[in-house]
Design a protein around this nucleic acid. Structure first.
Length: 573
DNA sequence: GCCGTTTTCGGCCCGACTGTTTTCAGTCG
């Protein structure tokens, strides 16, 4: 998939054009096209092969040519030309907080600053001071910004972001004057990764609440501290922004700060057509030059004023949004309470921290009716893979526990290795003994696309394989997904009635939402699993649900929303 | 550079905070 590459190059061009002082709308066109391409659920090379590039929103004749050139030759002449005029390394300068295209241009024009290194030197030697609009404070901010970037302010996974946010929300909620608190931004949309955390607060005493926020124990640095907006950095460099709004604006602000950016643009365009205006304070009619407040207390009320049904935050992205703005009700997406069991958790039989009995007790506590204990197979020695002999003992333990349990069933499962040739780690006789088989790749990530794909395809074709575990192998912040022909895998998964897993473990979140969106369109069935290695991990199910919802997945498309009897009937064999 | 249910030309979403200024530009979301 070259989607990210293409999106990156267009984004870079947008920024370079801005440094060149080009037309702002041209610049925006580049960024917008980049946004839409990175959110694309299909492989852009496929789109190109089928001559459908122009169907991507924001991509017109000129960009079709540039993108095609890049995909064909691996180079884009317009980009090459641009970096001859403006050094590419200036993009890193623009990336420094408090430095944007304008300041980068100023430093380049006046001081020949071409890189972050140049900028650091110039700042330390006092050469920035005295340039138009630059005083000591600005220099300090730039030096601080360079430090933060150096410390690696990457995106964190949804699990970590949720934990940080919920702790702060908990503390803010304790304030007496605080009436309502909600996360907003990409966290509320449940994106797989989140850069910073947005929190919205309704308070009867804003100044007091803001003071409390910037004084929280986890605050390392206060970046901004105002009446309605403050921004802090936590000990581990997570940026948290809090905004305080009035009751009559809470819904409008929540809508606005939840985004996504493009979603907001569309909402405002709809408003304009109806002689209305949308901002974070409310929905207003603007007939005859007079503004009248129409709605703002809740998101529901705001969307209704615009003639729209409620749109869950997870759907407020570019993918699949087309129908949302017609006023039609979005589908009833899968919810956490629909989940009746899961089929991919580990126990002390392999590398899990808890016994089968403890895992089962946790599942019951979560309200499930069944749980498949799917330990690693023999070959994965590093994770304590279960030998064929031990499988018999494990089965016995499960049978014994099941006799004691009422209204709950432990299933005998495995997470079987798909080896480098696509063979499974247990033979057919052993495989036939399991209730469920999750087949996964844990080795040979670097193999060529063709080979990796055929390994997974072969696993799907095995009549005992229930599902493919974490199908793309991504490790957020560590490892890119492996190079597979996802289109082919979806096709075979449908043909063979093999489910694809949405792995809810926060560093995985695999399938991701755009892959899951594509798979759903192709008719793939899903299982949502936590891959828990300890009882508490089973609470990660919520993140898998979020990914499924972002992919527009409904209850009927998720096998583990079925009761155990129906589930076992629905899977292969 | 994109886009069109009044348009193939003339629009293109909106506001807070900061740091620099005496009214605003730049950055950020």
């Amino acid at each position: 998939m070259k989607n990210k590459e293409v999106a990156d190059i267009l984004d870079r061009m947008g920024t370079l054009l801005e440094i060149k002082d080009e037309n702002i709308f041209k610049i925006r066109a580049y960024h917008k096209a980049a946004d839409n391409i990175s959110a694309l659920s299909e492989d852009i090379e496929t789109v190109r092969a089928e001559n459908r590039l122009a169907e991507i929103p924001g991509v017109g004749k000129a960009l079709v040519e540039k993108i095609s050139e890049y995909l064909d030759k691996g180079k884009m002449s317009a980009y090459e030309k641009l970096v001859k005029e403006v050094p590419e390394t200036i993009l890193d300068v623009v990336n420094i907080p408090s430095v944007g295209p304008k300041k980068a241009k100023l430093f380049y024009d006046e001081l020949k600053v071409k890189s972050v290194g140049d900028l650091k030197k110039a700042a330390e030697q006092g050469r920035l001071l005295g340039l138009p609009g630059i005083q000591q404070k600005a220099v300090d901010n730039i030096l601080q910004g360079i430090k933060v970037v150096a410390a690696g302010q990457e995106r964190m996974n949804l699990g970590k972001a949720t934990a940080v946010a919920e702790e702060i929300i908990g503390q803010l909620t304790k304030q007496k004057e605080v009436k309502r608190v909600s996360a907003a931004g990409s966290l509320r949309r449940c994106k797989e990764t989140v850069r910073d955390i947005d929190i919205l607060v309704e308070s009867s005493e804003p100044a007091k609440t803001m003071e409390a926020f910037v004084s929280l124990p986890q605050v390392k640095k206060v970046n901004a501290h105002g009446e309605t907006k403050s921004s802090i950095l936590t000990g581990d460099n997570v940026q948290v922004d809090v905004r305080i709004v009035e009751p009559k604006s809470f819904g409008a602000a929540l809508l606005y700060f939840t985004g996504s950016k493009n979603f907001n643009v569309k909402i405002r365009q709809i408003a304009q057509k109806k002689d209305m205006k949308v901002n974070e304070y409310g929905i207003f009619s603007v007939k005859n030059e007079r503004e009248k407040y129409l709605a703002g207390k809740t998101e529901e009320e705001c969307l209704e004023a615009l003639g729209l049904a409620y749109i869950p935050p997870e759907l407020r992205e570019d993918i699949g949004e087309k129908d949302l703005f017609s006023g039609k009700k979005p589908p009833r997406l899968v919810e956490l309470k629909d989940i009746k069991g899961e089929i991919h958790v580990h126990s002390t039989w392999s590398d899990g921290k808890n016994t089968i009995e403890e895992m089962a007790a946790k599942a019951e506590e979560l309200g499930y009716g069944y749980l498949a204990i799917s330990d690693h197979s023999a070959r994965l020695k590093i994770a304590g893979g279960v030998s064929p002999e031990d499988l018999l003992k494990k089965k016995k333990e499960i049978d014994g526990l099941n006799k004691k349990l009422k209204g709950f069933r432990i299933l005998f499962g495995t997470e079987v290795e798909i080896d480098s040739e696509g063979n499974l780690d247990y033979d057919e006789k052993i495989l036939s003994g399991f209730d469920v088989v999750v087949a996964s790749v844990h080795t040979g990530f670097e193999q060529p696309k063709q080979r990796l794909t055929s390994r997974i395809v072969r696993a799907c074709q095995n009549k005992y394989v229930t599902a493919i575990g974490h199908p793309t192998g991504v490790h957020l912040g560590k490892r890119e997904p492996y190079d597979v022909d996802f289109k082919e895998i979806c096709k075979v998964a449908v043909e063979t009635n093999t489910a694809l897993e949405i792995n809810a473990f926060p560093v995985r979140l695999d399938l991701n939402s755009s892959n899951a969106y594509y798979a759903r369109e192709k008719g793939v069935k899903f299982v949502i699993d936590t891959d828990a290695h300890a009882t508490r991990h089973m609470e990660y199910m919520r993140f898998g649900i979020s990914i499924a919802r972002r992919a527009w997945i409904e209850k009927s498309q998720v096998l583990n929303t079925l009761t155990v009897e129906k589930f076992l009937k629905a899977i292969k064999n």
